[in-house]
Design a protein around this nucleic acid. Structure first.
Lengths: 169, 169
DNA sequence: GACATATAGTTTCAAATGATACTATTAGAG
DNA sequence: CTCTAATAGTATCATTTGAAACTATATGTC
């Protein structure tokens, strides 16, 4: 099945198409495009907006930094998503009485309605993406992705001691 | 291991952290960051530039559209990468004698040197990413990603009959 | 209570990406 | 040959993303 293992450090052997990170990116882009088209085309939502809504949909009221913790977005992205969702009146922001730096974010009735509209649509896409995988394969894929993700995060942590606050995305 | 299967269409059950496309994106972002930091921080190369170099490194001379075919980038991205690589004098562009619309692109000696420098670095990252996976797990992961990717491309093809030229990325 | 530091969130600037429209050249139909 | 359509690549504009600096509030130390 595998070719005869030539010296893997041979520089002339480098094939982009067989390069693992490249394949990951192409895979991720394809999946991304499939899902985001649903909420983007029909509701004009960006990924950050969708994520923010998804988190607020379950947890009625959260501060921006609590969304950061739950969304693997950085605070700048969350701030921007909150702004645009407010503009669309899908989200309401109040100020925390205890700590006036903190915001108290909630979906509006309209925001919640749209969120509930979107859920079955993205669930359908999710199901279609993994339709030809068995249950075992699905969980295995998740597990393997998580393992590699942890490796990647550890690597970035080692090399980039220049980051400051959140995960790199 | 799995929780009792409640009704999966229950709208209040939606958890972003368990949503497959979300996990894919977080995974992809982490992998991306790990690899691209290598060629970005040390050589100031963007993803498009790196891909372009990787393809030209193997195939001495290609036109821009041949790079498009091999890189899953669209022609706009390739055009931009070519421009910036030319500016850095890592790539040389001639015009095809047969068909004067076509370019003939090659890495310069300096471009090739950098490419050869980068290869072992990205190979190290690649190895580190999958260090704790067995051979079987690695090939399985690849296979599963490919399957899902095909599903995703089919989905986008169905919905988006508005695309025109290349793959969505 | 004044001062240094940390935290919450926003603004700003630069780089990257996507979609569309455009120019130049070639190929094909008549 | 001439006109139309296709192809190769570029330019333009809007959106997205990331890094870093900035503002406002709160916390801890003395």
């Amino acid at each position: 099945m595998m070719a005869i293992p030539t010296n893997t450090t041979d520089r002339d052997d480098f094939q982009l198409g067989a390069f693992f990170p490249y394949k990951v990116r192409v895979f991720g882009t394809a999946v991304s495009a499939a899902v985001s088209s649903v909420y983007r085309e029909r509701y004009g939502l960006s990924v950050s907006e969708w994520r923010t809504m998804a988190i607020l949909g379950r947890n009625q009221a959260l501060s921006a930094s609590e969304i950061v913790e739950r969304s693997s977005m950085d605070k700048v992205n969350v701030s921007r998503a909150v702004q645009s969702l407010r503009k669309k009146e899908l989200l309401r922001r109040d100020i925390d009485g205890e700590d006036r730096r903190k915001s108290v974010l909630r979906l509006t009735a309209e925001g919640l309605r749209i969120f509930y509209d979107v859920i079955p649509l993205v669930r359908d896409v999710e199901a279609a993406l993994t339709a030809n995988l068995s249950e075992e394969e699905q969980t295995l894929l998740m597990t393997l992705m998580e393992k590699v993700q942890h490796n990647a995060e550890a690597l970035v942590g080692e090399l980039g001691a220049n980051t400051q606050d959140n995960e790199p995305n």
